[in-house]
Amino acid sequence: MPGLPLIPIPHPLAGNGPALVADKAAAIAGEVVAALCGDAATIAATHAARFTHLTERRLSGGAVCIDAVCAIDPAVAQRAGGGGR
């Protein structure tokens, strides 16, 4: 649906701790406000082609993430660094 204001956050979300979820929320709050008020046609135009490039993206670089900033929660990664028992 072109123009639907979809605002992405870095994947994943389900495994994130409360602090990281709050950070991700804060990071997009401004975009949410911009999508919720004002001229609908302008908002639609802003979002119309936002993800189009993804659908045409080639695999030449291998299977890549939608967003370069996607990562495991650093707090989890730090704890995992010890490798467990």
Binding site: I9, L13, A14, G15, N16, P18, V21, A22, K24, A25, A26, I28, A29, V32, V33
Partner: peptide, 18 residues
């Protein structure tokens, strides 16, 4: 789904003043 509600809470907190 996991953390969807927490994300909404976080955004709502940011917007609370408005």
């Amino acid at each position: 789904k996991a953390n969807a509600g927490a994300l909404l809470d976080g955004i709502a907190a940011q917007l609370a003043a408005d």
